[in-house]
């Protein structure tokens, strides 16, 4: 039985049943080695307006702003005024009592999340070969981004220092 199956398989998959017979010939060449997603005459017809331009520009501008925001954040949290040991619930509550830090953290949250999302989207576009893989990876990415941004925003605005 198993012998039989193996025999049928080998014939179907094109593995030569006769020893010494070459697999490929002039009339039966092997498939050529193709790169992923070739350009054809139909490529590049669907335009998406200026989205790519704005995404590219956003990466540059948000990057510059994030350098200030993140380094400032790290200094305040980890270096100045006692270092990392000072961080506690009370410290965070105290900071978020001031609208300045609320705006700072909100801006940092939105910019960092969008900056990271666009960057990951670029990586997925570059490295995911199959269309299905791209769709799923990007779907996962956008879901995670929306969830994190909404949750973070909610916490910043509804933070209750008297929570028990």
């Amino acid at each position: 039985m198993s012998n039989n199956v193996a025999k049928t398989d080998s014939t179907a998959s094109g593995i030569g049943p006769v020893e010494g017979t070459p697999l490929y010939s002039v009339d039966n060449p092997a498939p050529v080695i193709e790169p992923p997603r070739k350009r054809t005459k139909k490529t590049g017809r669907a335009t998406r307006g200026n989205f790519e331009l704005y995404a590219w520009l956003f990466m540059r501008l948000s990057g510059v702003v994030l350098v200030v925001l993140v380094i400032g954040h790290l200094l305040v949290q980890l270096v100045l005024d006692g270092g990392v040991s000072k961080i506690s619930f009370a410290f965070v509550a105290g900071r978020w009592a001031s609208p300045f830090w609320q705006v700072w953290d909100l801006l940092m949250l939105w910019l960092a999340m969008l900056h990271g999302t666009i960057g990951l989207r670029t990586i997925i576009n570059d490295y995911a070969e199959r269309a299905n893989t791209r769709v799923w990876l990007k779907g996962l990415l956008y879901t995670a981004t929306v969830f994190t941004i909404l949750l973070g925003t909610l916490v910043i605005f509804t933070f209750d220092p008297n929570i028990r």
């Binding site: 490529t43 590049g44 335009t47 200026n50 790519e52 331009l53 576009n125 570059d126």
Partner: peptide
């Protein structure tokens, strides 16, 4: 420029 503004245009340059 409009053609190169596309998804597969200059913005894919790293």
């Amino acid at each position: 420029l409009e053609i190169l503004n596309d998804r597969d245009g200059v913005w894919r340059c790293r």
